[in-house]
Each structure stands twice: as structure tokens, then as C-alpha cells.
């Protein structure tokens, strides 16, 4: 079943055609990888799906809703979680705060949130939070501030946030970029485990070797367009792909 369908998407910045008519179908319960040389438009694609940017033309359909023109928080509410290539955390908030904000949305309700605080009715969510942190292997006290985390820990927390947020699709933007080989292996295992749990994942990755073991389907992009698609094995030996990568 197709969860997310992207049709003929175009987006340019000044003269740069970051997306130039690309098409994708993201299947449920699968890991779809999106690879391609630097600057080929992968992150822009994510930004347009999340509505941090709006496309010039083309449509995006998620769960049969047309999400081409809606506001970013609605995309998120429909069930799309995402991580960033360079995760930005809330520096003054703790790990617990981050995960709770991702899990629940009633913090936006002023009166509810106020009276819960006033009468000390706040539920303890630590068990659920620790479960998610264990899943991604982030072993830090829950009251650690965002500003006290290393780059690798930030990547893991960002992943934990995406998992904690109620979702039907997780989009990961270069989850292992700038990460040491040991943690890289760990993240690979996490992604495989997530898939076993029935998650649908799109993962952007610059490094072809990383996705070969985990992806069910691979799209290769070049200059904002589809280059080829197929199973990892088919992609690995494709002449066009090798050219695109070597010609970088």
C-alpha cells in the first residue's frame, strides 16, 4: 500500500532548481532510501513534504489527503515525523521535556495545562520515555539539558523524538552523517528493529553502503530529478548511479 505519493514536484531557489519534477511512492511498512549526490535536492524534498517550504507545482498525497498546501503543524498532526540532518534541540529544555512535547499535543491547551500544573495533576510519563530512549540507546538522565548533549547524542534524541511523536511515517535526513562507525552500526540496527515493529521509514543517506543492508527500495536522485529506482542490489551495479556518484 502506498502511504505517501509525490507527483511531479518542483521547487527552485532563485535560479537553482532544487526539485525539478520528481516522483516517489513510499510503501507502507518498508524502508525506502533516498540517495544522491550532495545538493541534489534530498533535504529540500523533505522540507517541501513538511511544508517548511512550499512547492511551485506538483502534488503530495499522504493517506489520501492532499497535503500540498496545508500548514506545517497539520502535516505533523496527520502523522509525519522527521529528523534533521543537523538536529537543533531546545537548549534550555531537558530530554524529558523534548520527548513529552513530541508525545502529547495537549500542552497547547492553555487552561488544561495551567490547571494540571496548579493542582499538581501531571502524570508521570517517565516509563514510556525511558522505553523510547532505550530503543534508540540514549542512556542519559531524563533531566539532562539539550545544551549538554554531544552531536551523536543529539542525533539519537532527535530520532527518539521522531519515534515518540504519534506518526505513520518517519522521515530521517542523514541519520548517520558525521557519526562514528560504532554508532553508525547501532543506528542501522535501530532502523531494522523499527521496520520489524511495522514502521514506515524514508531515509536520506549520502553513503550508499549504509542503506544497502537496510532498504527495501531505493530511489536515486540527481539534480532534483529521479535518476533510477529499484532494489538495493539493482542500484548498486547500475551504470548511471556509478556515474552520478563518481562524477561528483
Amino acid at each position: 500500500m502506498t502511504l505517501l505519493k509525490i507527483h511531479n514536484l518542483k521547487k527552485s531557489f532563485g535560479g537553482v532548481k532544487a526539485l525539478n519534477g520528481c516522483n516517489f511512492n513510499i510503501e507502507k511498512n518498508k524502508i525506502t532510501a533516498l540517495i544522491g549526490p550532495n545538493g541534489c535536492g534530498k533535504s529540500t524534498l523533505f522540507n517541501v513534504i513538511n511544508k517548511l517550504e512550499y512547492q511551485e507545482s506538483g502534488t503530495i498525497t499522504f493517506l489520501n489527503y492532499n497535503i500540498s498546501k496545508i500548514r506545517p503543524y497539520l502535516v505533523s498532526e496527520l502523522g509525519i515525523s522527521r529528523t534533521f540532518q543537523y538536529p537543533t534541540l531546545f537548549e534550555n529544555l531537558t530530554i524529558r521535556d523534548h520527548i513529552e512535547m513530541a508525545m502529547f499535543n495537549d500542552d497547547q491547551k492553555f487552561f488544561k495545562s495551567f490547571f494540571i500544573k496548579l493542582f499538581g495533576l501531571k502524570k508521570n510519563n517517565d516509563k514510556k520515555i525511558i522505553e523510547i530512549l532505550n530503543l534508540v540507546g540514549l542512556e542519559k538522565p531524563l533531566n539532562t539539558l539539550g545544551s549538554d548533549l554531544s552531536y551523536g547524542q543529539r542525533k539519537l534524541l532527535d530520532l527518539a523524538i521522531a519515534i515518540a511523536h504519534p506518526h505513520k511515517l518517519i522521515m530521517l535526513d542523514e541519520p548517520v552523517a558525521g557519526i562514528n562507525p560504532k554508532l553508525r552500526q547501532k543506528i542501522k540496527e535501530i532502523l531494522i528493529k523499527l521496520k520489524e515493529m511495522g514502521e514506515t521509514i524514508i531515509v536520506i543517506e549520502h553513503d550508499m553502503n549504509f542503506i544497502m543492508d537496510i532498504a527495501d527500495h531505493v530511489y536515486v536522485m540527481e539534480s532534483g530529478q529521479n535518476l533510477v529506482e529499484g532494489k538495493p542490489k539493482e542500484i548498486q551495479n547500475n551504470k548511471k548511479v556509478l556515474e552520478a556518484y563518481l562524477g561528483e
Binding site: N50, L89, N92, M101, D107, F110, S113, K117, L118, H165
Partner: peptide, 26 residues
């Protein structure tokens, strides 16, 4: 009590980083 509530936490998050917050559905 507002600042110590979950709504108050959201206010601080708005200050720190709006983009990440939008993606959490806020």
C-alpha cells in the same frame, strides 16, 4: 504556574526553535 506548566514549556520552545516545534505538530 503558567511558566511551569506544559504550556509554559512550549513557550520556551517557541523561543528556542520554531521550526522543530512546527514539526512536532504545534
Amino acid at each position: 504556574n503558567i511558566t511551569k506548566s506544559s504550556f509554559g514549556r512550549l513557550l520556551q520552545a517557541v523561543r528556542d526553535d520554531e521550526i522543530s516545534l512546527k514539526l512536532l505538530g504545534k
